[in-house]
């Protein structure tokens, strides 16, 4: 039955090459921790992806309660943290996931760097990977404001001050982020929410797609 459905779809959409790229390929020995324990360093990229998936899922659940305006943002987070069933767990996973994803992406970057795996023909994939790292830092920065507690507000003020000291375009960057020349307030919160929930995740998904397509195209780098 399943085979028949598969054949029916495959006949029309030719999905076999797609399936082969995703799943039907061999894993070489040098990346397999079952053969060489030291190959666990190859797990960091996959774990980064794993935490990213958890971040997306927990974030989706958080937006069911979170209200991005300065009157209700803190109240909604407080309610989520203290009243909602498992709210503490979901918010906790999102909070700790933000740190774990940075740790994992950092270890993954070091693995690729010290193995020289970014060399020809994989230069572009390295560039995309570093861009993913930047997007992750951006997500961390914008997400810090959202609970609208003391450290969120004042850390963001400092961050915006630093952005405002950009040569030539500092003032414009500041207004783009804060929504107002002087006030870090209601406008800033909605902007950071939009950047955190729509702009950066969209960029992240696009970059991750490019990252994975390139891995499948080029295969994994050989043993040292």
């Amino acid at each position: 039955m399943l085979n028949k459905i598969y054949d029916w779809v495959d006949e029309r959409l030719d999905i076999t090459p797609l399936w082969r790229d995703i799943a039907d390929h061999e894993v070489p020995e040098h990346v397999n921790p079952a053969h060489h324990f030291s190959a666990f360093v190859y797990c960091f990229g996959g774990l980064t992806f794993f935490v990213t998936v958890i971040q997306i899922l927990s974030g989706m659940f958080l937006t069911m309660y979170y209200v991005p305006d300065i009157k209700n943002a803190w109240e909604s987070v407080y309610y989520l943290q203290n009243e909602v069933a498992f709210g503490m767990i979901v918010r906790g996973m999102h909070h700790w996931g933000a740190s774990l994803v940075i740790v994992m992406i950092f270890l993954h970057t070091l693995r690729v760097f010290f193995q020289g795996a970014y060399k020809k023909p994989r230069e572009l994939n390295w560039v995309v990977g570093v861009l993913i790292f930047f997007v992750m830092l951006g997500l961390g920065f914008t997400g810090y404001l959202l609970p609208w507690d003391m450290k969120a507000l004042f850390a963001t003020k400092v961050g915006i001050q630093i952005a405002a000291s950009t040569p030539f375009i500092g003032e414009q960057v500041k207004i783009l982020l804060a929504g107002h020349p002087d006030i870090v307030g209601a406008q800033t919160l909605t902007r950071f929410f939009a950047i955190h929930v729509f702009f950066l995740p969209a960029a992240l998904l696009g970059l991750m797609a490019a990252h994975f397509i390139m891995i499948r195209r080029q295969g994994i780098s050989g043993p040292l």
Partner: peptide, 25 residues
Amino acid sequence: LTVAHPSPLERVADPTDTGYIPLPD
């Protein structure tokens, strides 16, 4: 980790409290 260390939440943002010393993540 999540169960052992609940994620922190400070008091609601008060822009008038200028004595607060901020720290990023």
